[in-house]
């Protein structure tokens, strides 16, 4: 599984509001999306993030994988993360 790097200059607030200084776009994130993005920012790998979410939330692995895939794809589309 690939790993991803968050573009450095992104400002993400605690409330889940994200502003991309380079593109001028803003986004809102739900709490779990916010958590995942923060983990990505801290340099955690997808596998580490997966384990963390699985231990914390009531969800099975394959459902989480699908959701994570979709979410990461959107982050790439929005130019918020890039593949390392």
């Amino acid at each position: 599984m690939s790993n991803y790097k968050v573009f450095d200059n992104l400002a993400v607030s605690e409330s889940g509001f994200l502003f991309s200084p380079s593109t001028g776009e803003s986004f809102t994130l739900n709490p779990i999306a916010n958590q995942i993005l923060h983990l990505l920012k801290q340099g955690e790998t997808i596998n580490q993030i997966k384990e963390k979410i699985l231990s914390e939330y009531d969800i099975d692995e394959s459902s989480l994988e699908k959701d994570l895939d979709d979410f990461i794809n959107q982050l790439i589309n929005y130019k918020i993360v890039e593949e390392k």
Binding site: L18, E25, S26, F27, T28, L29, N30, I32, A33, I36, I53, S55, E56, Y57, D58, I59, L64, D67, L68, D70, F71, Q74, L75, Y78, I80
Partner: peptide, 22 residues
């Protein structure tokens, strides 16, 4: 320990002049 209720991670691009979450 009870696990937290899961919801899909969601990111929404703010499109001004369109629907907002409220």
């Amino acid at each position: 320990m009870d696990k937290k209720i899961y919801e899909r991670p969601v990111i929404i691009k703010q499109q001004m002049g369109f629907m907002n979450k409220f």
